[in-house]
Structures are given as structure tokens and as C-alpha cells.
């Protein structure tokens, strides 16, 4: 497995490189920022389009969430940029602190073949390698603490209470696993109207406005949680 790495801490980077090499992976590139890594992976100019780059192409990249220049969410924008240029590269974002909102942003930016783990994962070589393999295989990996938090975010039943009856109908059918088209037929609505309702549901549940699988799952989780509360 070939891995590329971007982290502004040289100490951490060298530790991870050692760990990956000890675990049998090959580190193809290291960088101290997301931009540097992108420049390294996708060199500009026509000559670089083929050839050796393919051999150096990583199976996955490990990105620090906080990197220069602003130390806020560069890991996520770098992930989106890499995914846009090469959808087959798996992406693992590491963070010192598991933050649910960042995980959501990452899911929305990248979708699948992505992971969001605590940096503490580096204390378990086997776990790190197996999570990387899952990501390379196209799975989505979330740190258990993040999952707990995503669930916690849906805890507030009051958000469900803000939905109007029509939106609640739409959400109930989403929970049954129906697509927008299926819901439209069920409720005698146009697919466009259902889309509007779905967007509105996401908005009211504080999930962002886009209809992604991730959001659908979280909306449904919120719905199920509120149903639990009521019984």
C-alpha cells in the first residue's frame, strides 16, 4: 500500500512514516501542508501527466485536519481537491480532537472512500493499517467518538418538532428507505416538491442543505431517535 502524508508537524510526520514503513506500507510523499502535497501529487505541466507519477501515485493520503495557513479545516479542503483530481485515492483525515461538524463537512465534501480518525490511532499500527485498507476499498470510516457525537447531535428532539406535517411524512418515508421519486409517488407530489421538502428537513435538523446519503442517514437517525423518545 502506497501512502502520501501531509502534516505540519515534522515530529508527528516522521513518527507516522516510521510506523507505516514498519507496518509494510510505502510512503510515496510527505508534505507540511495540503497545498504542498497537492503540488507534489499533481505536478503542473504536460510532461508530468504520465509515466513515473503513476508509479508514485498513492493508494491513500493521510491529511492533518489543521494545517497551514489558517490551521482550521485545511484537511477537508485538501481532501476535496484531491478527490476532484483523482477520485480513486482514498483519503484519511486525522485530527487531535474528534469534532462531529468536521466529520460531517468531510462526508459532504468527499462522500465515500474516506475516513475521519483521531490522531491517537497511531498508537495502534494494526488498526491504522486496516482502516486505511477499508478506505482504499471505498468504505467510509469514522472514529467511534465521532459516531457517538453524530448520534448525540440528533438527540435534540426539539428539532424534529419544528418540522411541519408534510415534512414529517417525507422524513418518515425516507426512514423506510424510499428514494425521492418513491416518496413523490407515495404522497402524490412532484419529485421537485419532495426535493424541496427534503432540503427543508435537512435545514431544520441543522444538517446542511444538500441531499447527500450521509445527510439522509443522519436525518433518519434523528427521526428514529425522536420516535424512541416518544415511546
Amino acid at each position: 500500500m502506497r501512502i502520501a502524508l501531509a502534516d505540519d508537524s515534522a515530529l508527528f510526520r516522521s513518527g507516522v512514516v516510521l510506523l507505516l514503513q514498519a507496518s509494510g506500507a510505502k510512503v510515496t510523499a510527505e508534505a507540511s501542508s495540503g497545498d504542498e502535497l497537492i503540488a507534489c501529487l499533481f505536478p503542473a505541466g504536460p510532461a508530468a501527466a504520465h509515466g513515473p507519477v503513476d508509479q508514485e501515485r498513492p493508494d491513500a493520503v493521510i491529511l492533518d485536519l489543521r494545517m497551514p495557513p489558517t490551521f482550521t479545516g485545511e484537511g477537508i479542503s485538501t481532501a476535496a481537491a484531491i478527490r476532484a483530481r483523482d477520485p480513486d485515492i482514498g483519503i484519511l483525515v486525522l485530527s487531535t480532537f474528534a469534532e462531529a461538524s468536521h466529520a460531517s463537512q468531510l462526508m459532504e465534501a468527499v462522500g465515500s472512500g474516506v475516513g475521519y480518525l483521531l490522531k491517537d490511532t497511531v498508537t495502534d499500527a494494526g488498526n491504522l493499517i486496516s482502516q486505511l485498507e477499508r478506505i482504499v476499498a471505498g468504505e467510509t470510516v469514522l472514529d467511534p467518538s465521532v459516531v457517538r457525537r453524530l448520534l448525540a447531535r440528533t438527540r435534540s428532539a426539539s428539532k424534529i418538532d419544528t418540522l411541519n406535517p408534510r415534512e414529517r411524512d417525507v422524513l418518515a418515508r425516507m426512514a423506510e428507505g424510499r428514494s425521492n421519486v418513491g416518496i413523490a409517488q407515495d404522497l402524490f407530489l412532484s419529485p421537485r416538491t419532495v426535493e424541496a421538502h427534503v432540503t427543508s428537513v435537512f435545514g431544520k435538523l441543522g444538517l446542511g442543505q444538500t441531499d447527500t446519503d450521509n445527510n439522509r442517514i443522519r436525518a433518519v437517525l434523528a427521526y428514529l431517535r425522536s420516535a424512541d423518545d416518544q415511546h
Binding site: A22, S23, D120, T123
Partner: peptide, 19 residues
Amino acid sequence: DGAQQHLLGLAARLTAAMT
């Protein structure tokens, strides 16, 4: 940026050594 990364780097080295 300092202590946390430093310790994490150490943890990674330690884990590497364990292998």
C-alpha cells in the same frame, strides 16, 4: 502544535518500534 504533536509523534515511533 507543540506538546500534542510531539507526543503523538513519539506514540507513532513507539508503535513502529513495537512492530
